[in-house]
Design a protein around this nucleic acid. Structure first.
Lengths: 184, 184
DNA sequence: GGGAGCATGTAACGGGTTACATGATTGG
DNA sequence: CCAATCATGTAACCCGTTACATGCTCCC
């Protein structure tokens, strides 16, 4: 999967270093797919090179040193296209530890639960802002129409997630009030 | 994480076998957290027992054999509560390979993309139906108020995801039309 | 001078999966 | 009788992470 993600990043023309790829992953991929660790990127690049899916070239980083920049090969593009075309679509993987904590609400105080959900809300807000920023940035270029589609999707995803957090907070408040009634 | 999930399942009273835990994971946990493989559940149970977080008891499965059922210990409950209470909340992990494929739309035909999104839509629809069913099932019991909150959240999550898929399909159609215009 | 960013990697580990093996019971 | 469900586990593997090491350059 990480391999496909990297090939994907390289498939929008461009020649990128491992470092570059990490940055691009962090500000586009991560909206819909967990951004891999830096070390993993370098590992995958080596593997992809062995497979002939990318080609590397040394290019001067400064006067003293070189850096390796990678470019997708025809074989790489084919492999990637074949994946999109033929592989069975797996369901998205979601590991929502925030909701897991809410699920275990009977073990925590209502204040703590609210704190958790509020932190999550902030996270959503930040992602939403980044996605909106990204939508503006990628505008108007023919080449980016699909990425554009995806960041727009991400925008609504995080907006929904934020709104759900708000509803959750309201429900937690309501539960608190009910509990008070019982006590009184 | 899997350990906490299992402790969580065991924290709603009940004594459960590894097999039971897999079933429960598959029809409650999976709405917000990836359901672990069966083998992993047995591994974690052993580990949790070593740690003293669960206790095991042999109980007759049929006339010939026994099965091991597990119960959360006080130490286990404490550890779980401590996790909810004190651990920093990580952002949810999302690995949306469907959106990754859309992102790579320039490598696929519009028909294929629609096929992918439609399959995803079906998945969402199925999850939504299951979540709705689950909401009805868990109703009215005081003990399940938090799980109830979470399945309600899941319901809206998958409804949103389905609606987003619909919007995506509409946008893909629109793009197709634009492309036709250019050609003509 | 020092911190941030550029750039690349290794080593150890962990968490999780698939595939497989086994075997009894129940229901159609 | 056959398939599905109950029930538990091992072995091989893989994907990916954290932690660490290194060293340059640019800017304040």
């Amino acid at each position: 999967m990480t391999a496909f993600a990297l090939l994907g990043l390289l498939s929008f023309e461009r020649e990128l270093s491992g470092y570059d790829l990490k940055k691009w992953a962090d500000n586009s991929l991560r909206f819909f797919y967990w951004s891999p660790a830096t070390s993993q990127i370098y590992n995958e690049l080596k593997r992809l090179e062995r497979l002939g899916y990318v080609s590397a070239r040394e290019t001067p980083q400064d006067e003293l040193r070189n850096k390796r920049v990678y470019r997708i090969t025809v074989a790489g593009r084919d492999a990637l296209a074949a994946w999109v075309e033929d592989s069975p679509v797996e369901p998205p993987v979601l590991k929502h530890s925030v909701m897991m904590r809410v699920w275990l609400g009977h073990l925590a105080g209502g204040e703590r639960l609210r704190e958790i959900v509020e932190q999550h809300r902030s996270y959503c807000e930040a992602m939403l802002a980044d996605a909106q920023h990204s939508v503006e940035g990628a505008r108007a270029d023919e080449r980016w129409e699909y990425p554009q589609l995806v960041v727009t999707w991400a925008e609504s995803y995080f907006r929904n997630e934020r709104d759900a957090a708000d509803r959750l907070l309201a429900q937690l408040d309501a539960m608190e009030v009910d509990a008070m009634d019982v006590e009184v």
